[in-house]
Amino acid sequence: MRWTVHGERTILDTPWVRLRSLDVEQPDGARVAYDVVRLRDLAVATAVDDQQRVLMMWRHRFVTDTWAWELPMGLVEDGESPEAAGARELEEETGYRPEVMRELIYAEPAAGITDSRHFVFRAEGARRVGEPSERNESDRLEWIPLADLPGMIARREIVSSATLVGVMALLLDLRA
């Protein structure tokens, strides 16, 4: 069943979030206002080394006041490809530059309320090129053994949906 959008009006518009009210017609014919969050695309990088470890950052998220391990990630800038954004974020946040970015998985984490698209890449041949240039992301980086990831997920040491999707896709990718 398809919903029809008849119009859209701005409620809030910031560089980070665009809140919109949509005039929609539901399949049963009812017309309602439906609020949605419009977000920019997100690129995520999973850098794996030859020892079967993934590069992760220990981060504090002030919105939820939680600490957890995350993959390097960030917003895709206007005119930038998701692959380029993933490589840029990896270098800015960790100081590692990939040779190749290979698409690992695509996700829409909350398609009923937001249009956010997550592009997750496997960063191949990542090598250290310097210190991270982004100083507000993390002060702790570690190469985590892939075998440790399931336990970390179970202990809620990995909770970000973009990171969860990325590490689970990475684990599936290794089995193929």
Rank of each mutant, 00 (worst) to 15 (best):
M152F: 12
V5E: 15
V44K: 03
S21G: 05
E131D: 15
E83R: 12
L22F: 15
V54F: 10
W58A: 12
P150M: 02
A107I: 08
S81I: 02
A107T: 14
V76F: 10
A126E: 02
A47L: 14
T46G: 06
A111G: 09
R128N: 06
P145L: 10
F121G: 01
T10G: 01
E8D: 08
L39E: 14
E83F: 06
E89M: 11
A87V: 06
L39H: 01
D13R: 11
L141N: 02
F121V: 02
T46D: 10
R31N: 04
D50W: 09
L141P: 00
E124Q: 13
V17Y: 07
L12P: 00
L71R: 00
V44N: 00
E131I: 01
R117E: 12
R127L: 11
R140I: 13
F62K: 11
N136V: 00
A111D: 13
G130R: 02
M57W: 02
L146W: 09
M56F: 12
M73E: 05
V48L: 13
D35K: 00
P150A: 04
A47E: 04
L71Y: 03
T64H: 08
R117Y: 06
D78W: 10
A45Q: 07
A47Y: 01
L146P: 01
E80W: 05
D41E: 15
L22C: 04
A68E: 15
D139K: 02
A47K: 09
L141M: 15
A47D: 04
T114Y: 04
V37M: 08
R18P: 01
E124C: 08
L42E: 12
R88M: 11
E134A: 11
V44A: 07
E99Q: 15
L141K: 02
G74P: 00
P150N: 09
L39D: 10
R88N: 11
D35E: 14
D115S: 12
S133Y: 03
E25T: 14
A123Q: 10
E99A: 15
R59L: 13
R122A: 10
A147V: 07
E131F: 10
V24P: 04
Q51H: 13
D13G: 00
V17M: 11
I113G: 01
V129W: 14
R59D: 03
D23L: 13
R38M: 10
F62V: 12
A147G: 00
Q26M: 13
R97F: 04
S116L: 15
V37Q: 00
V44L: 10
E8A: 09
E25R: 07
R88D: 11
D139E: 13
D28I: 07
T114K: 02
Y106I: 09
V17A: 10
L146K: 02
I105F: 05
T114M: 05
G79Q: 05
G95H: 08
